[in-house]
Design a protein around this nucleic acid. Sequence first.
DNA 1: CCCTCTTACGTGGCTCGTAACAATA
DNA 2: TATTGTTACGAGCCACGTAAGAGGG
Lengths: 214, 214
Amino acid sequence: MELRQLQYTLQIAKEKNFSRAAQKLHIAQPSLSQQLAKLEKEIGILLFHRNTNSVELTHAGAQFIEKAQSIMDLVEQLKNEMDDISQLRSGKLIIGSLPITGSHILPFVLPVFRQRYPEIEITLVEETSANLEQLTVSGQTDISLLTLPINEPMIAFQEIIRDEIMLCVPPMHQLAAMQAAPAEVELRSLAEQSFIVLKKGQGFRQITIDLCAE
Amino acid sequence: MELRQLQYTLQIAKEKNFSRAAQKLHIAQPSLSQQLAKLEKEIGILLFHRNTNSVELTHAGAQFIEKAQSIMDLVEQLKNEMDDISQLRSGKLIIGSLPITGSHILPFVLPVFRQRYPEIEITLVEETSANLEQLTVSGQTDISLLTLPINEPMIAFQEIIRDEIMLCVPPMHQLAAMQAAPAEVELRSLAEQSFIVLKKGQGFRQITIDLCAE
DNA sequence: CCCTCTTACGTGGCTCGTAACAATA
DNA sequence: TATTGTTACGAGCCACGTAAGAGGG
């Protein structure tokens, strides 16, 4: 039993006439007869009474087209669904991000995206840079927003924004005097200072350490 | 899109392994790859992520098999239904009968039939012999129980019972005396009697008239 | 005689299998 | 090297079209 045969049978039932049904289906009329005959042989029962000038559903035929129609409807739904997904009108996107990015950048981006693709379901995963790299490589996130540098060679990346790193000190600090005339601070001049750094696995910690290693 | 492809896809999703799925489907593994590739090309989206040692559904694939399963289930139902009908386990039977047959013969037959084929729906049409002939020829009844002779040449028939025709008279009637020693009555001796005959179109009227025509 | 569906038969396309290949553990 | 999925290619089957047949008004 093939979908083609269901479709043909439905068309015959609709037209009650093989020739017209064949025209609608864009096939030759004998081919239609053949396919129906084959189907009837397969299921072992006549679907239509054919008299010279009338084509009528048998009882079995009436039962048949009822289910056949449901099947064809479902197939149609399935095709449309796949179409939506393949044209990115619906789907699922898993975005990995740093907690800070998640709260500073995504709130501006996601609403726009949602409006444009309302059928796409978005899942947000917040992790450290190091973990995000692993999640992205293993496919557990579709894309991730993280900080350079990236160690994992499998990852393709593109720079989005470049940020200045600022040095902050309390008002009493010896460097606070510079605030009146801001200028670049020689890293070397901070060599003796103590810093609070981020936890291991967070990108900014590495950046900080790399900078100070000089 | 073909039912075969749905079935193949479902099997792959079940096994998460092309080779095993191909075995279950009794086809060669490359044929399975081919069909899936063809399907994916048709709908324009990948249904499975294939890594060297894992086969996993994509989001689209998961949506796909859900509907595909419903479709295959419906197809299975359809087949079973047709099977039932073709094996006469279910269906519809329109029986034509004379009112008298309907009340004397069918009450003995139908209960037995119903028990044997509970899924067959029976419709009873009571009509005169002449009308039943027409209904049967035009297919409005599947079979009819009526009285011979049958005028319509298209009808195939089989004799079921043969009945004696009795002559009844009131107690005072001149022929009532014969009741003591019943014997055949010469039709000729009734020539002068008057009869009440049935309406036109009823078989027994014709029989009576034919007999008396001699 | 025209219109209907069926039967007969040859052709092209499609699914299948075998074989060779590629990738990974 | 064993096991996985993919690519290549030839063979048989099947749906199709054309042509001829058959049954009814």
